[in-house]
Structures are given as C-alpha cells and as structure tokens.
Write a protein that binds this DNA or RNA. Structure first.
Length: 740
DNA sequence: ATACATACC
DNA sequence: AACTGGTATGTAT
C-alpha cells in the first residue's frame, strides 16, 4: 500500500476522483489479487489510469452508485456505534473474551492442511507450450482477461479486467486466445501429483487443498519437508510452479499461500502462538469471506487488520448485529484466533441447490430480442437439468438493466410441480419477463420506485433463468427402485398428467438441437470424469456420479462456519456436515436427502430415450414455415405466454429456435467453455467453469469417517454470508432430508 | 415464497 | 465503445 509519490500521468480536468472510487475501480490490485512488488506502475498510477478509461461508462456510474450506498452503510454503522457507546455497560470485552475462550477450546492443531495454488495458471499453461512467451506481458482471454502474465501484472493488468483497460495500462499487451484443453490437461497433471500426498479437494482448476497429515506421519517428515517435496514434484512433472500455504487449517493455509507467491511457500507451525502471530497482521480483505463491503464497514469503525479485531472487540460487540452477515462477531473472533476448518473433503451431488444460465448481450429494449434471449437461456438450462437429472419447483428470472442494476423475479407454479423441460422454462421465463415489461410503465406512471432508470421501456443487458428447490430425479428413481427415470409433471397445472409422448419428444427435440447428442448414456459424467482422470491415474475420483454436485464449499465449508456455532457448538455443527458428507452410507444418504416421496408424477420412459433418434439437425434446419412465420411475423404484439408455449410445442420448433437465436442480441462476450467432464457449456467465464470442474473432482470422496451426530447451530453466526461459510444449520438439516 | 446483497472462482 | 457467468447463503419482508 505504501506507494511512492504520485506521479499521475493522467489528465483529469474534471473534479478530483474520489479515493473510494479509485480504489474500487483499481480493484483488488493492491490487496486480494495483489499485484505486488516489482511493479512498473505505482498503485496510484494504475488507479488513475483505470479511472480515466472507465469514468464515463455506465459501469462506472453503477460503481459510483454502489460506492455511495456503501458509504451510507458505513455512516450508519458509525452512528450505531456512537449510540451504543453511550449506553455501553462496560462489560463488552468480557463478553468477547468469554466467546474467545469458548472458541479456543475448539482449536485443533492436529492436522497438516495445505492449499496449493498454481502461479498465473492460465498464463503459465501457455508459456509451457510456447516458451517464447516467458517474461512477456500478455493476457489470456479476449473481452475479459482470465489471467495476466506476471509480465503484464507489473503494469497493473489483472484477471477479470476488461482487455481494453488492461491495454491502457500496458500498451504492448498481447492477448492470447483461450485454450481450455491446455488448462484442463495441466490441471489434471497437477492434481495427479497432489493426490500422491493425500486427500485433495480442488477448489478450481488451479487450486486445491491437500491433507498432508497422513503423509507426514508415514514418511516421518515435517510439513515443511512435505510441501517442499510436493512443490518440487509438481514442477518437475508438469513444468508449472505452484505456491503453497501450510498450517493446521484451511483458513490459514489459504492466506499463507499468498505470502510467498509466486513459486513460494509458507508454513505455519502447528502451535497456537504461531497461528495467532501469523494472522494478526493480515489485512482483513485477505481473509476468505471478507469482501469489499465487509472490509469497508470494518475500516469505517477503525479496524484494518485481523489483530484489530481483538483490540476493538468491545466495539465489535456493540455493533455485532449490524455488521452484515459476513462479519458476525464469532466469525471475526475465530479469525483473530487463527481458527479454521481442517477437513479436506468433497461435496456431493445432493448439495446442489440451483441450476442457472444467464447471458449478457448488447443492451436492448427490443421485446423480440429479449424473448429470444429467454429462449436461448431456457434451452441451455433445460439441457443442463436434463443432463444432470434434476428438476426444480422455482424458476427465477434475473434482469440486469442497461445501467447494471439488476432485479430478480421468481415464480413457483405449485407445491408439487417440478420443472425441467424447455417448454416450461420458456413459458415461465417469458411470463415473468413480460410481466416486468408490462408493469414497468404503470409503476413509473404511478411514481413508484423501479430499478433501471425511469424510462418506461425496459432496457436490459443481461437475462438469466435459475431453477431452485431442486429435486434429484436420479436419487428419486433409485429410492423408488426404478430402473428408468422418474419425472413429475412439468405443466403449470397441478394436475400432473403428462402426455408422455408429448413431453418426451418435446424434451428431446428441444434440447438437443446442437450438441447434446451424446450426453447421456449410461453414466456420462462418470465416464467423462474417468476419461479425464485416467491419464492422471487418479483413482480416488473414480466415481463421480454425474456432472454436478456440491460446490465450492471447499473453503466455505470450512471456516467461518467453525465459528458459527452459537454458543457452544462451534465446530460441532460443522462436524455434522462433514461427517454426513463423508459418510459411508451413500445409499442411505441419497435416500434420505433425496427428496422423494412426492412425485406422483408419471414415470417416464427410460433414459436413453433417444434423442439420438431425433432428426438430424440438417433435417431440422430444412424445416419450414413455422420459423419463417414466426420471425417474419415478429408481431408487434407479443404472443401470450400460452401461445408461446403452444408454439414451442410445435414440431418445427427446433428450427425456429435456431433461427431466432441467430437473431437474438449478440452475446457481449464470445468465449465459450465446455466442461471436460460433463460438457456443460459456460459462456464467457473461465472462473465459472473452473469452479464447476472442481465439483466433479469433489463429487465423491471415499467415505471416511463414521457419522457423528451434531447439534444445532448458532443463531447469528451462521458463518456467514461470506463466500466462505456456506454451510448453515439450515443447509445441514436440509442436506439430510430435503423433501419435495 | 420472494427479493436482494455479498462473496468466491 | 467496451466491465462475465455460476452458485451459495444470509437477511428481510
């Protein structure tokens, strides 16, 4: 942070940029994703250049709005604190100390947990096959940079930065096309090595936790020796360098891995003193789960580092209910103590909560184009659901207005109505969208609040659909001892009468269209995964059920949670999750958690139901008048949802969809990623796929420990909304018996 | 049940 | 000109 005298190359006749905005736009270049030492530009230069380039954009305006709102929050919090201090009883520190004592008792220093993180992974993958790139300043990715090489980072370029901005920072910046195969291969190689040292839990393509406890014991080596060997072996066998953090838990290891990056390691001794000493000076923002908002709030009341949590524990106690989910008192105290989760485990299929697809496009108000986007999104989502064999009860539409402000609108057709088909998703999606479009002018006329400006005509830059309240059709089928698939009606009417033939044909033709011709067979996910892992000779993953599964609980699953327990059960509640997850009784587990019962729906034909047999796309394309009609007709008036639905059922629909897609607003970014395991397609975001892939690896960890009963969770601390603590008591309970 | 905010990769 | 996509989870209503 200390930066030399500001020599700002930027012209800025306009008013002084706000410091908060400079920091915001400059992004995490100074902290979380640290640009670090050796920079050619100072933090100030970077901030000002970025500011200059983007200050007139809508994106910037939106950021300013957020900045203002955040400032209001900070002021409010300060006010609260001032007020509370007036009536403080003076025993706040004692209260905090009592909790600290309680948390301290949960400390577990028995394990050796490492977090391995590849250095500039995507960039390094390119260098590996093209040594000439060594040392050069280049970025990977087109519109948005997936990664910047270290050569480019010196100029302030970083991942998730739009290319045009990165280019301003580094004029000679080169952009390399994304080559997913390259990264997947490298990732596989790295994980293969890691798995020789212990149980691993990938958090993304280039990052994984490894439990070195057993290795250290078996080899009779220190954690330092173990991680030194591991890193050397990774480099020797893959040519890629990784950085690592080692400590008794994930929280500390994650932070430690950043200390000597790149190509470095940091080991924290398994003692209370070492753990606490290490974390005291850490900036709050570096901690998993503390994002921009939380950091700003805490800064607002005087805290900068983890150590300050203790110093200001009385303050924190006073405003403990106003910190926002991610900053719950316990979570912060646990952080101060250097506590964290220490189980390296994977999530399961049943942990999945939602499926969704969203698309960004050139902002438009054209109803036809918006409808088309919904169709494309619905189609894609239906395909995902079918592939993964899930259905859900609630459909949520997300609209991001042209000014970047977004809203969500949800619809749940009925208590026992589970959806998964294209036609249902489009119908509901269009219904929600049209309702929003139609209501808008009325609300504005009435002078009511609306997002996205005051123009009565809705103009959007993104539309997305998400399905929640999931039901695992596979588990359901298993529970019912059915061999084939089981499905519930997808009609909007509670009457579940399915005209099977209809729906089926429907489904198949709808979704397939282009690619999925081969997706399901016996167990596509498993096959694919095995294929992926084969070369790497990793077996622990042998059984990755399907393409989906829990997620990035990883860290999450780890830390904040540990403090979550309300008084008392801190880690206990976690155990519940861990144990459950690790449980051997998978079958039972599935049964229990699989929400079954339900399902009075019709049984559907076997899986294989051939989409394979569907007409070839060429045939389809030949198609007919429907398409022409529908698009030529592009009626000034929109069809009613019902009509839409009906038409969707038409035979020529496929073709029509295809055509419409071509006409839909163009995606803002052209990148496409295909998951190597399940073939799910990700548009424009490597990060999304990266996280997704981890789930496959994570999908089925060999059962490890006997189940342990745990109790409650704590009220307020749920661990929190922060990225981290994903598991809440609710989740836990749910996990065990989600029902329809 | 719905809407929104925060966080992570 | 131009700033992603997918998922989880907590709070509030």
């Amino acid at each position: 942070m200390a930066s030399p005298a500001p020599r700002l190359p930027v012209a800025g006749p306009s008013s002084e940029p706000k410091a908060s905005m400079l920091k915001r736009m400059g992004g995490p270049s100074d902290l979380k994703a640290g640009v670090g030492r050796g920079g050619i530009r100072t933090a100030e230069e970077i901030q000002h250049i970025v500011h200059e380039v983007s200050k007139r954009s809508k994106y910037f305006k939106d950021q300013e709005r957020r900045d203002r709102e955040l400032q209001v929050k900070v002021d409010k919090l300060k006010g609260r604190l001032a007020q509370e201090e007036l009536t403080a009883r003076g025993d706040e520190e004692d209260k905090a100390d009592a909790i600290l004592k309680e948390l301290e008792e949960t400390r577990d220093l028995s394990r050796v947990i490492a977090l391995i993180d590849a250095d500039a992974f995507y960039a390094a993958c390119h260098v590996r096959v093209n040594p000439e790139l060594e040392g050069k300043a280049f970025g990977v990715g087109g519109g948005m940079l997936t990664t910047a090489s270290y050569g480019a980072r010196k100029y302030g370029c970083r991942s998730a930065m739009p290319f045009f901005i990165a280019q301003k920072l580094c004029p000679h910046l080169v952009s390399l096309k994304l080559e997913p195969d390259l990264y997947v291969k490298a990732s596989r190689e790295i994980f293969a090595v890691l798995s020789k040292y212990g149980t691993i839990a990938p958090a993304s393509l280039d990052e994984a936790y490894v439990d070195l406890t057993q290795y250290c014991a078996d080899q009779d080596v220190t954690p330092t020796e173990a991680i030194t060997r591991l890193r050397a072996e990774v480099q020797a066998t893959t040519g890629l360098t990784v950085s690592a953090g080692v400590s008794p838990n994930k929280t500390l290891s994650k932070i430690a891995a950043d200390v000597n990056k790149p190509n470095g390691q940091f080991v924290i001794d398994p003692t209370r003193e070492a753990c606490m000493e290490f974390i005291q000076g850490v900036r709050l923002r570096k901690c998993f789960g503390i994002g921009r908002v939380c950091e700003t709030l805490l800064n607002g009341i005087g805290l900068e580092t983890v150590g300050d949590i203790f110093r200001d524990r009385a303050k924190l106690y006073l405003v403990r209910h106003h910190l926002g989910q991610s900053a719950h008192f316990r979570f912060l105290l646990g952080l101060y103590l250097g506590l964290g989760r220490n189980r390296v485990k994977r999530a399961k299929r049943g942990d999945r909560k939602t499926y969704g697809v969203e698309k960004t496009f050139t902002p438009t108000s054209d109803p036809g184009k918006l409808d088309d986007v919904i169709r494309r999104v619905a189609k894609s989502l239906a395909k995902d659901l079918k592939r993964a064999d899930f259905s859900g009860r609630t459909v949520t539409l997300r609209i991001k207005h042209a000014d970047f402000v977004s809203v969500t609108r949800a619809h749940t057709p009925g208590k026992n109505i589970y959806l998964r088909d294209y036609k249902d998703l489009v119908r509901i999606g269009l219904m929600l969208l049209h309702k929003e479009i139609d209501e808008r002018p009325k609300l504005i006329a009435r002078g009511e609040e609306v997002k996205g400006g005051r123009n009565p005509v809705l103009k959007a830059r993104l539309l997305g659909l998400r399905v929640g309240n999931l039901r695992d059709e596979r588990a359901l089928a298993k529970a019912n001892k059915l061999d084939g698939w089981v499905r519930v009606s997808s009609r909007s009417t509670p009457e579940i009468e399915l005209s099977d033939s209809d729906t089926d044909v429907q489904r198949d033709s709808d979704l397939d269209d282009d690619e999925d011709e081969d997706d399901d067979e016996a167990d596509p996910g498993k096959r694919a995964l095995n294929a992926v892992m084969r070369d790497a000779a990793i077996d622990p993953f042998a059984d990755a059920g399907d393409g989906e599964g829990g997620v990035k609980k990883e860290d999450a699953a780890c830390d904040p949670a540990a403090f979550g327990g309300a008084s008392g059960s801190g880690s206990g509640s976690w155990m519940c999750v861990d144990d459950y997850d690790n449980d051997a009784e998978d079958e039972d587990a599935e049964v229990v958690r699989g929400r079954f019962g339900v399902h009075r729906g019709a049984t559907v034909p076997k899986p294989s139901q051939r989409r394979a047999q569907q007409p070839s796309s060429s045939t389809i394309v030949q198609g007919s008048s429907l398409a022409a009609a529908s698009r030529a007709g592009s009626p000034p008036k929109r069809k009613s949802p019902a009509a839409e639905d009906a038409s969707a059922n038409e035979k020529g629909k496929k073709r029509r969809i295809r055509k419409e897609e071509e006409e839909a607003a163009k995606p803002a970014s052209g990148n496409e990623w295909t998951c190597p395991v399940c073939d799910k397609v990700f548009a424009g975001s490597e990060a999304a796929m990266s996280g997704h892939v981890a789930k496959h690896f994570a999908d089925d960890e060999p059962p490890a420990r006997p189940k342990v009963k745990v109790k409650k969770e704590c009220g307020s601390l749920g661990g929190g909304g922060m990225g981290g603590s994903k598991v809440s008591s609710k989740t836990k309970v749910k996990g065990k018996g989600r029902k329809g």
